[in-house]
Design a protein around this nucleic acid. Structure first.
Lengths: 223, 223
DNA sequence: GTCTATAGTCGGATAGAC
DNA sequence: GTCTATCCGACTATAGAC
């Protein structure tokens, strides 16, 4: 009989998991200050005191949520980013191969940033931390943002035949990434203008094709 | 003698002005929840009770700050946007004229969004409200964002010979605008990657030239 | 590991003197 | 119009029973 054996050893882990899941949503929607520990505990169905116990406080839970985002994002991006990184290690990588990889890169990033409803709160979390770097900025930058931008800059360096350290290459990479990111940062404005409810299905495909059309023209003249 | 005549009638207006100035900075830096009425009152050098008295509460001050941003932004953008709007009313506007206006548009928006340190807090305020629409979203959207995007979409409609209502034109306008906006939304990431302290002077000019290089290639094939 | 109860702090708004 | 004093609610964190 369980009742005489005390709590299951896995219960603590389950409580941690539930808190992190809820933290992603609640911090994403309301921000660090806007979210209260009561919200978090109630929505996770756990006791208020579990937060300081498992995470040494509200900020610890916030950091744990950031680490979880990095892990999930790695799952999504690892196949494409890994292939790009491997290709970039080959000094004979051709421009047409780099172009092809860049196309896969923009499609993948758009699918994640524009299309995925699952990561809605994840993105809001990251955007907020971008805007006002706090306890989780380093976790997010070193864990994912740097790698994502490095991949784009690396491909552009091959296409433009410039060193990747060139600021211009990095600025180009940022601008190109901005074409994708705006559909996330200004999602509410876009949807309102277009009279759309979301960016799902065919609409994502349309956005992907427009972004690639733009990127293709940007790099075509040099390739 | 002033002392027997009570407070100056202008004092109330001065208090309002100081509160709004401080509100722009403090709400911009800490967000609505992160900013406390005590911060706001202390930093403005006014009494705590002045906030509910003049603005019917914290949220009223927040809305007043949003209206102030709209007014300031109109000052900056009015010359260029006014000219674009006037040109667009001419049904014979040529593609090369539209192209020229688009160049002025991207340069102006980049100067404001990337370069201007003065509006640092204004931008943070707006970005935050984009991310999580609240009491000020309508004020900002109807007061400035709509007009800014309409101008870009209008020019693209001429260049691409498509109706401005076409979703594709609006998606293109958004993507182009995203190339500029990312230097604001991801400013902290960019500066960190480049090892720069800010985007002032020559660096702004470099960013403007890269953005126009991209936009020019995007639209050149069709013009 | 989880719970209740509570401490201690800080939040925004208000009443009433000046 | 401004100020002080204060209310009351919400917050995070903790102590201690189970």
């Amino acid at each position: 009989m369980r009742s005489v054996m005390g709590p299951l050893p896995e219960r603590g882990e389950a409580t941690r998991q539930r808190l992190i899941e809820v933290a992603l949503e609640v911090f994403g929607e309301f921000g660090f200050n806007g979210a209260s520990t009561r919200m978090l505990a109630d929505q996770a169905g756990v006791n208020l005191a579990a937060i300081p116990y498992h995470f040494q406080g509200k900020e610890g839970l916030y950091r744990a949520a950031a680490e979880h985002i990095v892990d999930r994002m790695k799952e999504f991006t690892a196949p494409t980013l890994g292939e790009i990184e491997q290709s970039l290690r080959n000094p004979q990588l051709s421009r047409s191969d780099a172009l092809h990889l860049l196309h896969r890169y923009t499609d993948m990033m758009a699918a994640i940033l524009v299309g995925s409803k699952e990561v809605d709160s994840h993105c809001a979390f990251v955007m907020r931390e971008h805007l006002q770097p706090g306890a989780a900025f380093d976790i997010l930058y070193k864990g994912m943002m740097r790698r994502i931008l490095d991949a784009c800059a690396g491909l552009l360096a091959v296409i433009f035949r410039q060193p990747q350290s060139d600021p211009i290459i990095n600025l180009r990479a940022s601008a190109i990434f901005g074409q994708i990111l705006i559909f996330r940062t200004s999602r509410n404005v876009m949807l309102r203008r277009l009279g759309w409810k979301d960016f799902s299905g065919d609409r994502l495909a349309l956005i992907q094709s427009i972004i690639w059309d733009h990127v293709d023209h940007i790099v075509a003249a040099k390739a």
